[in-house]
Design a protein around this nucleic acid. Structure first.
Lengths: 203, 203
DNA sequence: GTCTATACTCAGATAGAC
DNA sequence: GTCTATCTGAGTATAGAC
């Protein structure tokens, strides 16, 4: 038998390195993590990293890509599952819930992302912001759907709304506790705010 | 004349160093900034830093303290200005507006704070989280006031509400543009969400 | 592909002159 | 108080054996 279906053996180590790096970056930030540490956690020696990656920078760049793409895909899939004709507010809820879950319970790539993006060398950051923009456009389109149906409050700024919501969700990695509220509950609480505010009767 | 009222001359340099450090930390993060850079921006030589601070860690610790205390005081003063009998929802708005303004337009201490806190050595972080908790307690009390008046929606989680709101505001340092929406407008938009949600009529 | 060993760079911190 | 000069350690990265 050929290796049909089997993992390209060489890539297993590569993946191990990526996961070790993502986990450490998430905990400690970019500059605080040394290649020695990454190598140790991945179970290889420091020099070996350079067979798989050109530099620390190229390693972190791949992690950023995996994180953003993962969150975007999770979000897009969740929305697609509702069907195009679904209530756009429900689409928003699906997107935010998927985002929160990917961010908080899936893997380290997405949370490493948020943590290290501001610390990473500018050239890398710029390239990455472009990927992130695609994701933002996707969510903006859902909000446009809501607005086009005349269902957005008159003094609501669409961009600001999107920014505040993503901020609320993204910031949760700094206080999230696996033993407390679940990612879905967090997203649900945000949707309460959107759907009818926090007050019992509007003031 | 004695030096009555004059700045304790020795402390001017100290303040210069703190401001230089805060500005650099805010832009680049904790580990990415060297003491040499800080010294240069402050207009002194590297060795001189050690006359004023024991270590890089003690320097960053003081910045964290200045940032959190500043935001807390700005917030508390704004609320106090309304008087104790004011509508608690208005108090919340005053607190969030002051927070956003301090964060986005005042100085570098508060924004440096949010950027570097996750990167700083654990011992320092723990000490600092304690200060931050006082601020959180203050805002939590306002939310309790609202709830005690029976004005909070039935399925609203007070803690989650506070976390999401601070997240939305704090995250804004990553996208804030001085030429775009002002800090007050950002806080106002958040208050719209709280007061009656983003939708024209609740769904 | 992965190892060992090491070159090179730059960080934080210190000592002592002024 | 601030300077110059320097120490020590750690980090990224490379070379070459296996």
């Amino acid at each position: 038998m050929a290796d049909g279906g089997a993992l390209p053996k060489a890539q297993i180590t590569r993946r191990l390195i990526l996961e070790a790096a993502a986990s450490l970056f998430r905990q400690k930030g970019y500059a605080e993590v040394s290649l020695r540490e990454i190598a140790q956690l991945a179970g290889v020696k420091t020099g070996s990293l350079y067979y798989h990656f050109e530099s620390k920078e190229s390693l972190v760049e791949e992690i950023l890509t995996l994180g953003t793409q993962g969150a975007f895909e999770a979000s897009r899939d969740a929305v697609a599952a509702l069907g195009a004709a679904a209530d756009p507010v429900d689409k928003l809820e699906a997107a935010f819930t998927a985002h929160a879950r990917f961010l908080l319970e899936k893997e380290d790539f997405a949370s490493a992302n948020l943590k290290i993006l501001p610390q990473v060398p500018p050239a890398i950051r710029e390239r990455h912001v472009r990927q992130d923009r695609e994701y933002a456009t996707f969510v903006a389109a859902i909000i446009d759907e809501i607005a086009d149906a005349g269902r957005l409050g008159p003094d609501v700024d669409r961009t600001l709304l999107r920014m505040l919501c993503f901020g609320a969700l993204n910031w949760s990695i700094s206080w999230f506790d696996p033993k407390g509220r679940s990612p879905s509950e967090i997203a649900a609480q945000l949707m309460i705010l959107i759907r009818r505010g926090a007050l019992a009767s509007p003031s």
